[in-house]
């Protein structure tokens, strides 16, 4: 009884500590950002395209849009591939190949992003440059990010598929439904929740990713006109300028961080919303 209560208090303490730390970080960012935000108004950041910190112009729109497009593009490329991959591991590979494939995916999920960036820079960017200069572009960012987040989605969807009761397969067979029918009409729809969760987690990784986008997108602050345009993401901007930013410029970077934080919150809420909707209508 006593040990139970002790454990409970300890757990509560640690939970409070973790939550407190997070709040501290958010509070700190907000405090650094709020002054400038109040002074210029949210509109000055959100609706203006010019990023000229020394002239006091802090339009984040091109970078916000770039970050958003990079994330959406990467998720759109990676999700279908990951779903097919997870289905393949579960229903088409033999037992040993499936184990091997799972290990490979887990390793791929753990590769540092800078390695993906390096790969993109040395292999993908020149390939794209052959199609259209300069190669470092929005498309390059989407593709490398897609590759980077792919294993995350595979792991989540694979876990969902593995948790499906084995008797679904027997039932489908007894109903004269072949394997392909089972995979696409029963198993994958049954793990829609996992697909949504996997895609959301991956989206959060993609929007927060800094190194990859810094290496392959060209870092030019502009509204992306085409997939082949070089662009700069919000995260890359912070990393590139934080070292020498002062005063208002520095605060503007904190405002960027605040927006990234809001993105993360929005992603979690979207996930909950989609899962909730699925629960009611699934």
């Amino acid at each position: 009884m006593v040990s139970d209560r002790l454990l409970h208090s300890l757990l509560a303490l640690f939970a409070a500590l973790a939550a407190g730390l997070l709040l501290l970080v958010v509070g700190f960012i907000a405090q650094e950002a709020l002054g400038l935000l109040q002074q210029l108004g949210v509109g000055a950041f959100l609706f203006h395209g010019e990023w000229q910190p020394y002239a006091g112009r802090f339009g984040l729109l091109p970078m916000l849009l770039t970050s958003l497009l990079l994330m959406l593009g990467a998720v759109a490329i990676a999700t279908p591939l990951a779903v097919v991959g997870a289905a393949c591991i579960n229903f088409y590979l033999g037992r040993h190949s499936a184990i091997l494939a799972r290990r490979l995916v887990e390793i791929a999920a753990g590769i540092p992003s800078v390695v993906y960036g390096l790969w993109g820079l040395t292999l993908l960017v020149p390939l794209l440059a052959a199609i259209k200069q300069p190669g470092a572009s929005l498309l390059a960012g989407m593709m490398v990010l897609a590759l980077m987040i792919l294993p995350t989605i595979v792991v989540v969807v694979d876990a969902g598929l593995r948790a499906l009761p084995t008797h679904y397969r027997e039932n489908a067979e007894a109903l004269a439904i072949r394997r392909s029918g089972f995979v696409f009409a029963i198993a994958l729809p049954a793990v829609r929740g996992s697909v949504i969760t996997g895609a959301t987690l991956a989206a959060a990784r993609a929007i927060g990713e800094t190194m990859v986008v810094m290496m392959v997108t060209g870092n030019l602050v502009q509204l992306p006109g085409s997939l082949f345009d070089p662009v700069r993401a919000l995260t890359a901007n912070i990393a590139l300028e934080m070292a020498y930013a002062m005063d208002e410029h520095r605060s503007a970077l904190y405002v960027s961080s605040l927006f990234l934080l809001l993105f993360a919150v929005a992603l979690v809420l979207t996930n909950q919303l989609l899962l909730g909707w699925r629960g009611r209508h699934g």
Binding site: H167, N171, E173, A174, A176, R178, A190, G282
Partner: peptide, 21 residues
């Protein structure tokens, strides 16, 4: 077997509808 299983239906020990409507 697909032709066969259309002629020969089966019900299992545990009721196991698919997780749909």
């Amino acid at each position: 077997p697909v032709q066969l299983r259309r002629q020969v239906g089966m019900v299992f020990q545990r009721a196991n509808p698919f997780p749909f409507s």
